[in-house]
Design a protein around this nucleic acid. Structure first.
Length: 886
RNA sequence: GGGAGCAUAGCUCAGCUGGUUCAGAGCAUCUGCCUUACAAGCAGAGGGUCCUUGGUUCGAAUCCGAGUGCUCCCA
């Protein structure tokens, strides 16, 4: 046996075992006769690094996957990453400019993509490295990227198919425009924030009159796009303006005054300027009243020629300029502080501009209905259900069509092909498009067809993830998709419930007519100690690799999980990793103790049955505890209460195993341990490591191998759980009760020792007055050892001059040479007495209430009667002890 | 503005279908211990009108209503 280090040293152990598991290909899965347990990783963004939210997610998945792998399943966890269209393109553009001085505008699409792929190859590996360091048991041979060739084909195939089914259409709509990335966004990519803005009151001159009408607006820079002023038809103040026109300031355009109940007379001045090109509500109003649309903004957020004034100026600069100009012309009535909500691009943080634009959309209604059904019917189960079911339902019931085109290059290019006249067909390839053009329009395309310049929303690729990682779209019905689909559980953050989860269910129902996963487990958001969201801008997100370096991967996994109650947001703090590291150490030291016993030699003690059973009490008790906890943990797994499961295992190991069991079986200093106890101890230790392994894979694997010599391939990672034994050779409840009794005896006596200021080394003689002497026979020896008593006897009466302790109805007397403070003892007993008397009164009160006795269930009444008689006996015992004290 | 969730020890939380095995756990705190695996430890202890307020009930931390505070989602 090599000498074990003082403390557990994770770094080398982790490296070595991960390599070993990889060499053995334990994480690689191929279809076989076992039941599959499939998990697909929520693909992290290829440009990013893992933050604590990912860490939590990956850890949860790894726990579930490892548990399944150890429970007879063919576990398959597919890793991968997504191409994150907007974010990656923005980064690549930035980098090209900075490092090589290349502007995107100067590049061809092909060249740009070449750079993007180079960049992805260079930096995309960071995430995978982090996943490895964390110990995740993913099947690396299956790693998938959403821009892989087959995946690209799958996305195109689905687009063409949905188009042919009439579920994808192209049209001009008001969409969310990101002026920084210069692309359309879906509704989900816009984040609304409260902003302190201003409301400007502006006078519009009524045409052919000296009258003015005052409107209120937040966006004076869009005045030049006004095509009407609208008031409420029931508003008497404006009745005289019916049929009149007003002159738009700065551009002096005459526009009509229109009447619509949409306008709230109480808001602002009751008059609304209508700018159909730049506000969604105005747009709808414009449609209703057939107003012209004047788009006064360019794609980059500067004023267009249509604005006539301040052309080329940025929209926010233009706002100041317009206000100044209005003021100069005496048209600005006043400014007012105003709090409102503004939309920001999730990716670039630019203020989103509502803009009319021709884009591609997916019809959502039908698919949303199916996705909703899958969840309400229970086919897909959401955890924790009460928290997220309502959100999920609400979104699907109110879903709008999905804008999927993005004005970018990094992504799957939309397979629509146009001729010079703007006629188009949708087909996977150019040659198919040419053919289709012929059949559709009865003539060949005039000249060559050009493909749509835009790419698809990244989520339009990731919604196929659970299928296409198994080539389920490109090769439907293949062996793998048949075997692995549907997956078992999806673990993800609640923030992408719409972006991703709901859409995956839609795609699954559409293309497999089957749910993509049975369970969805939503983790909470990771926040810092002060409850703030972790974000790059706050700089409050710890670096994962650094954390692992400081504490070890097992400790980090422990730390994040122990503070993560199901579905709740969790406040992450380094100190929980510290707790994990201490736990590692505790395990390590327990190992050292056991190894020490091994070194001290194993003895065969006399197995005379009675004596042997006594010696084996500790072993029987722990077997019972282990079996009980394993059942509890099993249940917690099935309910996804992983944090609780970990706590339960932690306490079983630290408290039951280390603090109680090991102390109970520990041989006297220097003496050899009994062979039976020793092998029991190794078995238990081994089983504990197995139980903990899904949570803390490295340290457990290491200890597993330290405990006993292992044959090649006998590794904890693949070791199968034995079913929890129905019988452990003794009556489980009885032995557990005995153990509890022993523990409370030890604690009570130790407490009495401390309160009476006995030094740990001061020996005592223990006398017990009890009606159930048999209870003590099994563990008498253990009891003496644990409370440093040199003698034990049963007595019928109080022992004068001793410390009296009342435990239940038993009385314990600690005889000692040390001078005692009887006053302190008396105080303690009086306190107990007072409590018991109060308790008795409350029980009596209940039992003397006729309605309670009549209405409550008989067993409840019976329990109360038992409580009463117990309390009476306890009171009697305390009173006797007090009497003996004098 | 619409909807959802939460409120229990200093902190983070557990308490399922109402009844002192229900007022708990882990951290943190306090007091003893360098006891021969572990001071990143051992032994022991203290600490809560279960947000407020009505109601249902023989009985409410638990069920219902109202209020207050916080969080999230949507427009």
């Amino acid at each position: 046996m090599s000498t074990l280090s003082k403390n557990f040293e994770p770094a080398q152990v982790e490296e070595q075992w991960y390599q070993h598991w990889m060499n053995k290909r334990y994480f690689h899965s191929t279809p076989d006769s076992r039941k599959p347990f499939t998990v697909v990783i929520p693909p992290p963004n290829v440009t990013g690094v893992l933050h604590m939210g990912h860490t939590l997610n990956e850890t949860v998945q790894d726990v579930l996957v490892r548990k399944a792998r150890m429970s007879g399943f063919n576990a398959c966890w597919v890793p991968g990453s997504d191409h994150a269209s907007i974010a990656t393109e923005a980064k690549v553009v930035q980098l090209l400019e900075k490092e090589k001085g290349i502007r995107k505008a100067d590049l061809t699409r092909e060249n740009f993509l070449k750079h993007a792929f180079e960049w992805k190859d260079k930096y995309g590996g960071i995430i995978y490295h982090q996943i490895k360091k964390l110990g995740c048991s993913v099947d690396w041979e299956r790693a998938t990227f959403t821009m892989d060739e087959h995946y690209y084909q799958a996305v195109i195939k689905v687009f063409v198919d949905l188009y042919n089914k009439g579920m994808i259409y192209r049209g001009a709509r008001m969409i969310n425009w990101d002026p920084a990335a210069q692309t359309a966004l879906s509704d989900e990519e816009v984040e609304y924030k409260d902003i302190q803005g201003k409301l400007y009151y502006v006078k519009y001159k009524v045409a052919d009159s000296e009258d003015y009408i005052t409107i209120a607006t937040q966006r004076p820079e869009t005045i030049m796009g006004d095509t009407a002023v609208c008031v409420n038809p029931n508003d008497e103040r404006f009745a005289h303006l019916r049929g009149k026109q007003v002159l738009v300031p700065l551009v002096n355009r005459a526009v009509p005054i229109i009447f619509d109940e949409y306008v709230d007379p109480a808001f602002g001045t009751g008059a609304l300027k209508v700018t159909p090109a730049h506000d969604i509500n105005d747009y709808n109003l414009g449609l209703k009243h057939s107003l012209p649309i004047i788009d006064t903004l360019n794609a980059d957020g500067t004023l267009s020629a249509a604005a006539e004034v301040f052309v080329g100026m940025d929209r926010f600069e233009a706002r100041k300029a317009v206000v100044a100009q209005l003021q100069e012309e005496g048209l600005l009535v006043k400014e007012e502080e105003y709090s409102t909500r503004l939309g920001f691009s999730q990716r670039t943080s630019a203020v989103v501009e509502p803009r009319i634009s021709t884009q591609w959309f997916v019809q959502m209604k039908e698919m949303a209905g199916k996705a909703l059904g899958a969840v309400t019917s229970g086919e897909v189960k959401i955890h924790p259900e009460e928290r997220f079911m309502a959100t999920y339902k609400y979104w699907l019931e109110n879903v709008k069509d999905w804008c999927i085109s993005r004005q970018l290059w990094w992504g799957q290019r939309i397979p629509a092909w146009y001729d010079a006249d703007g006629r188009f067909v949708v087909a996977a390839t150019e040659s198919e498009a040419n053919q289709l053009f012929q059949t559709t329009f009865g003539q060949p395309a005039g000249g060559t067809l050009t493909q749509d310049e835009d790419v698809l929303d990244t989520w339009f690729s990731s919604w196929l993830w659970p299928m296409e990682v198994f080539n389920g779209i490109t090769q439907p019905g293949n062996e793998e998709i048949n075997y692995y689909y549907p997956t078992n559980v999806l673990v993800t953050g609640q923030d992408i419930i719409f972006f991703w989860v709901a859409r995956m269910i839609m795609a699954g129902m559409e293309y497999k007519n089957e749910r993509p996963f049975e369970h969805v487990y939503f983790t909470g958001m990771v926040r810092d100690k002060q409850g703030r969201k972790m974000s790059k801008s706050l700089g409050n997100s710890p670096d994962l690799l650094e954390l692992i370096e400081r504490f070890g991967a097992d400790a980090v996994r422990f730390g994040i999980l122990i503070s993560a109650p199901a579905g709740n947001d969790l406040l992450f703090d380094d100190s929980s990793c510290d707790q994990g590291r201490s736990f590692n150490n505790k395990l390590w030291n327990a190992l050292k103790l056991v190894k020490l016993w091994e070194a001290n030699g194993i003895a065969q003690y006399d197995r005379n049955e009675e004596d042997f059973r006594k010696a084996a009490f500790a072993a029987d008790w722990f077997a019972a505890r282990l079996a009980t906890v394993r059942e509890q943990v099993e249940k917690m797994y099935s309910e996804f209460r992983l944090s609780e499961a970990l706590k339960t295992i932690y306490s079983l190991i630290w408290d039951d195993f280390c603090s109680w069991y090991l102390e109970w079986v520990k041989p006297p200093f220097g003496q050899p341990i009994d062979g039976h106890l020793y092998s029991c101890t190794l078995d238990y230790f081994e089983q504990l490591m197995q139980l903990l392994h899904p949570f803390m894979p490295f340290v457990t694997e290491e200890i597993y191998h330290q405990l006993r010599e292992r044959a090649d391939g006998d590794d904890l990672t693949i070791r199968q759980f034995e079913p929890v034994a129905e019988s452990i050779g003794v009556e489980r409840d009885a032995v557990l009760a005995q153990g509890e009794l022993l523990k409370s005896l030890i604690t009570a006596i130790r407490d009495a020792r401390v309160k009476n200021q006995l030094k740990p080394k001061d020996s005592i003689k223990l006398h017990v007055q009890t009606a159930a002497e048999a209870n003590y026979s099994l563990f008498e020896g253990l009891l003496l050892k644990q409370v440093n008593a040199e003698a034990f006897s049963f007595v019928q009466d109080a022992v004068a001059g001793s410390i009296a302790v009342v435990l239940g109805t038993d009385k314990l007397y600690l005889e000692t040479e040390v001078q005692l403070d009887t006053a302190a003892q008396k105080d303690q007993l009086l306190k107990d007495l007072e409590y018991q008397r109060g308790f008795l009164i409350s029980v009596d009160k209940k039992l003397s209430n006729e309605r309670f006795v009549q209405n409550a269930k008989p067993e409840v009444v019976e329990a109360e009667r038992k409580k009463r008689s117990d309390a009476e006996q306890k009171i009697k015992a305390i009173e006797e002890s007090l009497e003996a004290l004098g």
